[in-house]
Each structure stands twice: as C-alpha cells, then as structure tokens.
Amino acid sequence: MLAAHVQELRRGTVVVAALGILREPTYGYALLEQLEQAGFRVDGNTLYPLLRRLEKQQLLTSEWNTEESRPRKFYRVAPAGEALLTALLEEWRSLDTSIEKLR
C-alpha cells in the first residue's frame, strides 16, 4: 500500500526531474536510467511519449546525433522549459514549507 501511495506522490515529479536533467542534452534511454538512479521510477512507454509532448509544447528542443553507429535523438531544455522548471521548483519549495507547518 505504501508503495502505491509513494508512486502516486512521485508521478507528478517526473517532469520536474526530467527538466532538471535535460539541462544537459540527453537521449531517451539515458534519461530513463538517470531518472531511475535518482529514484524516479518511470516506464519507457510513459517517458518517451512525454518527451515528445514536452517538445511539442516547446519546453524541450531536440537534435539527432548521427556521429555514432546508433543515431540517437538528444533532448535539451528550451528557454520556456527553463522558466517552467523555475516555476515548478518554486511551487515545490512552497509545498514543502506548507507541509512542514503541518507536522
């Protein structure tokens, strides 16, 4: 039961974490692994369409890197995404303050 609630709590934080990581250009699977290492469990079939949506909303930009034998699509945060990340982090801190007051 705890696991389900924790997962529910973390679901909305994937976007924040992804925007944070994507300050460095990163491709889908590497992002998935980095999120996992940071404790944000997300499935590929959720993350990859999410990246496309964020790109469509012009929060991310992307570029194909074909220098290696396996061409990969690298995503990075666009200025609008940077602004969104700042706003979301601010919201995060204000939530944290509110929660602390409840304890």
Partner: peptide, 15 residues
C-alpha cells in the same frame, strides 16, 4: 518516432 524507438529498444537490450 521509428528511429528513436529503434535506438531505445537497442539501448535497453544492450543494457
């Protein structure tokens, strides 16, 4: 999408 999926499946399979 096809190109990205191919790379993603291959990356995951490698791992």
């Amino acid at each position: 999408v096809a190109r990205e999926l191919r790379a993603t499946v291959a990356d995951r399979a490698d791992s």
